[in-house]
């Protein structure tokens, strides 16, 4: 039952050569990485996985108090808590996909220096890990929506919810794509690492997370919507709460940007993974 496939490795550098079937063969590894990370996150904590839910609840609460109550930013008449929560969990998903993927090379240098497996397993495991968290948070979000609907709040969940899985994939792809590029560049230049951490928090403010896009003067709206994350957040909120600006063109643009980013990300990632251990 010996494996007879012949593999050839040569010095020639190629831009294309992602081996998806190999990645599929290592699917168990990706799942085990997810399990390891989940265990590591909550080992020796009292509340354990409940933290996944406490985190967004607390930050949503802070947002509600600061931006909603103190600053008094309009939420288009939607319940403030739900409004901030929708932006919060989707943004959280995006930013953790990005930052996890961006630490692929540097964070795993020791492991990568000792054993071979398709390096892409690590960011894929990152997506799954974040997806698990995001799903649980969305579940809580949905429960809250149902409660609000029952008590008769001004929200209108609509048919666009059917597109939610698409939006989730879109978010994951965009975040991970950018992360792959960052990871590949930081293998040699650490500058970008610093940029990413505060760049992410800056990016949040030009994304309609804490305010609705309708609050932006119409003349400047297009600038906001060029930010590829913005349309996703707006769409997501529109689907669940039934209010917001939903512009197809920007969404399509965002998808196009995402496709380019993912393609570019895979390209440089593949380029760097072969020899990064020599320069790390």
């Amino acid at each position: 039952m010996q494996d007879e496939r012949i593999t050839t490795v040569s010095a020639e550098k190629s831009w294309f050569g992602f081996n998806l079937s190999e990645l599929w063969r290592y699917r168990d590894l990706a799942l085990l990485f997810v399990k390891r990370d989940l265990v590591n996150s909550f080992k020796q904590t009292v509340l354990g996985p409940i933290w996944i839910l406490i985190n967004p609840l607390l930050s949503t609460l802070v947002f509600t108090v600061i931006f909603g109550v103190i600053a008094g930013i309009s939420t288009d008449g939607m319940p403030q808590f739900l409004f901030y929560m929708s932006g919060n969990i989707l943004w959280g998903f995006f930013s953790s996909c990005l930052s996890r993927a961006s630490s692929t090379f540097l964070g795993n240098a020791r492991l990568f220096g000792k054993v071979y497996f398709p390096r892409l397993v690590v960011p894929v495991a990152g997506i799954i890990y974040n997806l698990v968290n995001f799903m649980l948070q969305t579940l809580l979000f949905v429960v809250l929506i149902i409660i609000y609907v029952i008590i008769g709040a001004n929200i209108h969940p609509n048919i666009f919810i059917a597109f939610a899985p698409l939006m989730v994939i879109h978010t994951a792809a965009l975040g991970t794509g950018i992360g792959l590029i960052v990871s590949s560049v930081t293998a040699k230049y650490r500058d970008l690492n610093i940029l990413v951490s505060f760049g992410l928090s800056l990016l949040m403010y030009i994304t309609p997370v804490v305010y609705p896009i309708s609050q932006v003067p119409p003349d400047y709206r297009w600038i906001m919507l060029l930010n590829p994350v913005a349309p996703i957040v707006e769409c997501y909120r529109y689907a669940f709460l039934g209010s917001g600006v939903f512009v197809w063109q920007y969404w399509l643009l965002s998808i196009a940007v995402t496709a380019v980013v993912v393609f570019l990300g895979l390209l440089v990632f593949h380029r760097v993974e072969k020899n990064f251990i020599d320069t790390v």
Binding site: T8, V9, S10, K114, V115
Partner: peptide, 18 residues
């Protein structure tokens, strides 16, 4: 396959575990 060669090539049959 932790790092790749600067020149030349090698082939192997089956899987390599390191």
């Amino acid at each position: 396959r932790i790092t790749s060669p600067s020149e030349g090539k090698f082939s192997f049959r089956g899987r390599i575990a390191s």
